[in-house]
């Protein structure tokens, strides 16, 4: 079987879609093209949002702790190996509600970390809509591995 035959076979889940080979290739390309635009917008929005939240957190730190931030001893507490800062979703959430600067900055970082994860999630939806089962399986595997990463870190790995 040559390439276009395989492609056609793959894009014809139902007999009703048994369109000429050329058409099926074009629709596959078009679908990928639309996916590309959604992904690039998503990436940009994620990055801009996260940097805005990070700067907001830094500003809150300056305003709320305007006296602490000038004491050298505090630096050691902030950057020491065993420094305490929010590193679970629950701590970040409660800290953001209390308008604590560390937690807001952590939220900004989490938005950044979540951006590629969202990108994978969007791809899953797109491949599901195209009934591209191979790539649906591939992208779901990637998403599962990404979720696993958080659990792996929490497990003390």
């Amino acid at each position: 079987m040559n390439r276009s035959e395989i492609e056609a076979a793959d894009t014809m889940p139902a007999p009703a879609e048994a369109v000429p080979i050329i058409d099926s290739t074009i629709s596959r390309d078009e679908a990928i093209g639309r996916l590309e635009i959604v992904i690039s917008t998503l990436l940009r929005v994620g990055v801009i949002t996260s940097i805005a939240v990070i700067f907001f957190g830094m500003a809150v730190g300056l305003l709320r702790h305007s006296t602490d931030v000038r004491r050298p001893n505090d630096l050691i507490a902030l950057t020491a190996k065993n420094a305490s800062f929010p590193h679970s979703l629950r701590d970040v959430a409660s800290g953001v509600i209390a308008l604590r600067s560390q937690a807001i900055m952590a939220l900004g970082l989490l938005i950044l970390i979540a951006t590629p994860v969202m990108r994978v999630a969007v791809s899953i939806i797109a491949f599901a809509m195209q009934r591209d089962h191979t790539y649906l399986a591939i992208t779901i595997t990637v998403l599962v591995l990404l979720i696993l990463s958080f659990l792996l870190g929490h497990a003390g790995a």
Partner: peptide
């Protein structure tokens, strides 16, 4: 790279290796 780094970032964040006080100015 973004997805790859997100996977390691998940482990690092949950383990407490992403110190917002350091990581925030660095990222910005």
């Amino acid at each position: 790279m973004g997805v790859t780094a997100a996977a390691s970032a998940g482990v690092y964040f949950a383990r407490g290796d992403i110190n917002p006080y350091i990581a925030a100015p660095v990222a910005a």
